[in-house]
Nucleic acid binder design. Structure first.
Lengths: 107, 107
DNA sequence: TTTGTTTATCGTAATATTGCAATATAATAA
DNA sequence: TTATTATATTGCAATATTACGATAAACAAA
């Protein structure tokens, strides 16, 4: 056995878990951080920035892309990766909901 | 090889990744959701609420507790688990930072 | 065409996560 | 004391993730 009984949970719960899983590795946090420091971005820059091999970074980028946290537009030979603000909105809204429900709570 | 080169990343990056990892499973999202719907809470309730066995839920609660997302206070035989608002703050602040840096960005 | 540059994919070894039965622990009740 | 109740821990099988060398694919430049 092992791993994910995702059928048993709501679509919303699975969606949020997928978003958080995409952010659950320091390399992917670092990629998001880095994308926020530059105006446009190509993958090669990230390879130089992080202590990981190119295939590993490509894989992390793919996971971030699958989760819609970043989006990439082809630009000649390179690819311009950027944060997707809509997904950031979605996560912020989730915590807005939590914050709202946390009012009038005990403990 | 495989898995986590966490030494290579900043403390902040590792901390955020740890928080997101704790939220990266639908069962743990469901536990947080459930804790938000009740005023106080014991683990037994959660076992009845979710389609998972008691040891599995105990394990998920442990991970949420380790990440400081929930805190438990002993209450007789049972344990009262609650959301830790400080950690919710921390995550919200992180996205506040992202939101701030996202202004004047391209793509 | 050939060469170089950039990114993706494949294959695979090392490691981590998930789920649960069985069992243990801790506290209360009888 | 002996249940009973609530939660935690152990051990293990199934599965997922991570990292990277090797290689492929796509495209531009020479």
């Amino acid at each position: 056995m092992g791993a994910s009984k995702s059928d048993s949970f709501s679509l919303e719960q699975n969606e949020m878990a997928t978003l958080f899983k995409a952010l659950s590795h320091p390399a992917r946090i670092a990629i998001v951080d880095y994308l926020l420091t530059v105006d446009s971005c190509i993958c090669g820059d990230i390879v130089n920035e992080l202590p990981l091999a190119q295939p590993t970074i490509s894989q992390h980028l793919k996971e971030l892309k699958n989760a819609n946290i970043i989006k990439g537009t082809i630009e000649g030979t390179a690819i311009c990766y950027c944060i997707n603000p809509d997904t950031i909105d979605k996560i912020e809204n989730h915590f807005g909901m939590i914050r709202h429900k946390l009012k009038n709570k005990c403990c």
